[in-house]
């Protein structure tokens, strides 16, 4: 079994090498400031990264602005990428940090009375199945800033309430309240659309 895996990996090596080589050439181009390389990278990772900014902002234009800020950061600091881990992972971290930083700076996320009970969510699982991706993002963007930010961090980025509370400087109770409310509101929005 082990031998078989090793054999498969060996077969894959030329492909991996070619991929690494292509990626390295792309990075070389970025380091030298080549616009061609910048566009290639942007096109390559746009689809993967834009979702992160779309679900944390109010509009498509705002999402593109944040995404572009993140890519500016990528172009600027590509020299510091040392090839440890996947390039896409490295870029995603930058996009994520830029997005949260933007949300923190631009959206007022206020503390709520933690004694208030979150609204119960009436969850209907079939709400998503018939909707297109763009429609889902549109509905997420309709959520209030605080709700959207917490919801995105918890549901889509897999963060715990404690981490969210630390990042946004709110209490865990507030984070839970925003999440529950956001979930309910989004359900209603998706149902209507």
């Amino acid at each position: 079994m082990e031998l078989a895996i090793k054999h498969k990996l060996k077969l894959l090596e030329p492909t991996l090498d070619a991929k690494r080589k292509t990626e390295q050439e792309l990075i070389d181009g970025l380091v030298s400031g080549s616009r061609v390389a910048q566009k290639e990278l942007y096109q390559k990772y746009f689809g993967k990264m834009v979702g992160t900014t779309l679900r944390c902002t109010r509009s498509k234009e705002e999402a593109y602005e944040v995404l572009n800020d993140a890519f500016m950061q990528v172009f600027k600091s590509i020299g510091s990428y040392r090839g440890e881990g996947q390039l896409s992972g490295w870029i995603h971290r930058i996009v994520l940090n830029t997005t949260y930083s933007y949300a923190r700076k631009n959206y007022k996320i206020k503390e709520v009375n933690s004694e208030l009970k979150p609204q119960d969510a009436t969850v209907e699982n079939d709400a998503l199945s018939n909707l297109g991706l763009t429609v889902i993002y549109d509905q997420i963007q309709k959520l209030p800033d605080s709700h959207r930010t917490v919801f995105s961090m918890y549901v889509l980025d897999g963060m715990k309430h404690k981490e969210i509370a630390e990042k946004l400087k709110i209490s865990e109770g507030t984070s839970k309240w925003y999440l529950a409310t956001a979930r309910t509101q989004l359900q209603q929005l998706l149902k209507q659309s």
Partner: peptide, 28 residues
């Protein structure tokens, strides 16, 4: 139900990619 909704939503958003938008590159 909540967990299922969260998982389903996460799966949809993380597995599918939006197409490249030339407008974004123009802004860039």
């Amino acid at each position: 139900n909540k967990n299922t909704f969260d998982k389903e939503l996460r799966a949809r958003l993380n597995s599918e990619e939006l197409p490249f938008d030339p407008m974004a590159w123009e802004m860039m």
